Simulated assay, not measured.
Amino acid sequence: MQMKYLHTMVRVADLDASIAFFALLGLEETRRWDNEAGRFTLVFMAPSGQPECPVELTYNW
């Protein structure tokens, strides 16, 4: 049986600073979802050319 890495979720207090930190590590934003009803934003960041291995930044407003 082969296991597949899905993603890692990190809850953040400062979304802009967290995006900047992960960008320094070489990750880039691949997608974003703002949920007005749930009052949260999800930002997925992954290495260039590897969108299947994201880090999910979860920011609660």
Score class of each variant (00 low, 15 high):
Met1Ser: 11
Gln2Thr: 15
Gln2Ile: 08
Gln2Lys: 15
Met3Phe: 10
Lys4Val: 04
Lys4Cys: 00
Tyr5Phe: 12
Tyr5Trp: 08
Leu6Lys: 10
Leu6Cys: 03
His7Lys: 14
Thr8Leu: 12
Met9Lys: 11
Met9Asn: 14
Val10Asp: 13
Arg11Pro: 12
Val12Gly: 09
Val12Ala: 13
Ala13Trp: 05
Asp14Ala: 11
Leu15Ala: 04
Leu15Lys: 02
Leu15Asp: 01
Leu15Pro: 00
Asp16Gly: 02
Asp16Tyr: 01
Asp16Ala: 12
Asp16Asn: 13
Ala17Gly: 03
Ser18His: 00
Ser18Phe: 00
Ile19Ala: 04
Ile19Thr: 00
Ile19Asp: 07
Ala20Trp: 06
Ala20His: 09
Ala20Lys: 15
Phe21Ala: 13
Phe22Ser: 11
Phe22Tyr: 15
Ala23Thr: 15
Ala23Trp: 08
Ala23Phe: 04
Ala23Asn: 15
Ala23Gln: 15
Leu24Ile: 08
Leu24His: 14
Leu24Val: 09
Leu24Lys: 13
Leu24Gly: 13
Leu25Trp: 10
Leu25Gln: 14
Leu27Gln: 02
Glu28Cys: 05
Glu29Met: 15
Thr30Trp: 05
Thr30Lys: 13
Arg31Tyr: 07
Arg31Glu: 10
Arg31Ala: 09
Arg32Gly: 04
Arg32Asn: 07
Trp33Lys: 15
Trp33Ser: 10
Trp33Glu: 13
Trp33Leu: 11
Asp34Val: 07
Asn35Leu: 03
Asn35Phe: 00
Glu36Ser: 08
Ala37Tyr: 01
Ala37Ile: 08
Gly38Leu: 10
Gly38Gln: 11
Gly38Ser: 11
Arg39Ser: 14
Thr41Asn: 06
Thr41Asp: 04
Leu42Gln: 09
Leu42Tyr: 02
Leu42Arg: 05
Val43Tyr: 00
Val43Thr: 06
Phe44Met: 06
Met45Gln: 06
Met45Val: 02
Met45Cys: 01
Ala46His: 09
Pro47Val: 01
Ser48Cys: 01
Gly49Asn: 08
Gly49Ala: 09
Pro51Gln: 08
Pro51Ile: 04
Glu52Val: 00
Glu52His: 13
Glu52Phe: 05
Cys53Met: 05
Cys53Lys: 15
Pro54Asn: 02
Val55Arg: 05
Val55His: 08
Glu56Pro: 00
Leu57His: 08
Leu57Ser: 09
Leu57Asp: 03
Leu57Asn: 09
Thr58Glu: 11
Thr58Phe: 06
Thr58Lys: 10
Tyr59Arg: 14
Tyr59Glu: 10
Asn60Met: 12
Asn60Trp: 13
Asn60Arg: 15
Trp61Asp: 15
Trp61Ala: 15
Trp61Ile: 05
